[in-house]
């Protein structure tokens, strides 16, 4: 079975700060990491391979610096790695990104595609589902457990108050939650091997036949960012002190009822 895991290199949000003037992320000097959900997806892929055999391929779209994210994935045990990188890909929104990744996946081939649910820098949760739509394969999002069973996959899909257990035929796409699997560390020797391997570059030229240049990059991105801003508390709030638990509950309920919120 050929498992392809899509990973994104993101700034470590634990260390990231916002520029108070422009409301954009200050990326200078912030370490880059593999997005948490994606890493859980990679771990799941490695475990499936250990149990059932097959190969694990990692794919990352990004600038040349994203190479290190792919090396990390190789050092964790992935078999091969592709970097989707080209000037033409720059400025792509989720739709254009999914278009490019789907074209690359058709070229690479796959039985099972695993992406993260969402990236911690954009939080859209759109790219995974969009890739599935463009590939025309079934998708299961928010996976909290994945089990391969013959030619299908049994996925437990998380909801706020319940979970669905779904059986889906391969080939398909799954989006992984961070809690799907605790990722392993890289292996010290694995890092040596990772740099002895080749990260294959897929650029615009190598996808030219399957990619319409009008559908990618800024030109192919329907999303327009009008404004970005930090969420701010709008009112000072009320502090009620020295209440028993019952009194506190009653006070909160009164407020909610007074505002017709419940």
């Amino acid at each position: 079975m050929k498992i392809v895991v899509c990973i994104k290199q993101v700034p470590d949000t634990a260390e990231v700060k916002l520029d108070p003037k422009t409301n954009t992320l200050i990326r200078d000097g912030v370490p880059s990491i593999i997005n948490h959900d994606d890493k859980a997806g990679l771990e799941t892929a490695l475990r499936i391979r250990e149990e059932k055999g097959g190969t694990v391929t990692v794919v990352c779209m990004g600038p040349p610096q994203a190479d290190v994210a792919l090396r990390e994935a190789l050092a964790m045990g992935a078999d091969e790695a592709y970097l989707l990188s080209a000037r033409e890909f720059g400025g792509s929104d989720t739709y254009a990104t999914a278009t490019i990744i789907a074209a690359a996946l058709k070229k690479i081939g796959f039985d099972l595609v695993i992406t993260g649910r969402q990236a911690i820098d954009g939080d859209t949760a759109q790219v995974g589902p969009q890739i599935a739509e463009q590939l025309g394969v079934p998708q299961v999002t928010y996976a909290e457990s994945v089990k391969v069973d013959g030619d299908s996959v049994i996925v437990k899909r998380q909801f706020e108050d319940r979970a669905h257990v779904l059986r889906v035929k391969l080939p398909c796409l799954i989006t992984a939650l961070t809690e799907l699997a605790e990722p392993r560390y890289m292996n010290v020797g694995g890092i040596v091997d990772a740099y002895a391997k080749q990260v294959k570059i897929i650029d615009f030229e190598s996808l030219r036949n399957s990619l319409n240049p009008d559908w990618i990059g800024i030109k192919g991105s329907p999303t327009n960012v009008v404004q970005s801003f930090t969420k701010q508390a709008k009112a000072a709030g009320t502090v009620m002190k020295d209440l028993t638990a019952d009194q506190a509950v009653a006070a909160i309920m009164d407020k909610l009822i007074a505002r017709h919120l419940i």
Binding site: V68, R71, E72, A75, Y185, M186, V188, I191, V192, A194, Y195
Partner: peptide, 8 residues
Amino acid sequence: VHQLQQQL
């Protein structure tokens, strides 16, 4: 290689 090992 050494940078990534150091990170690990």
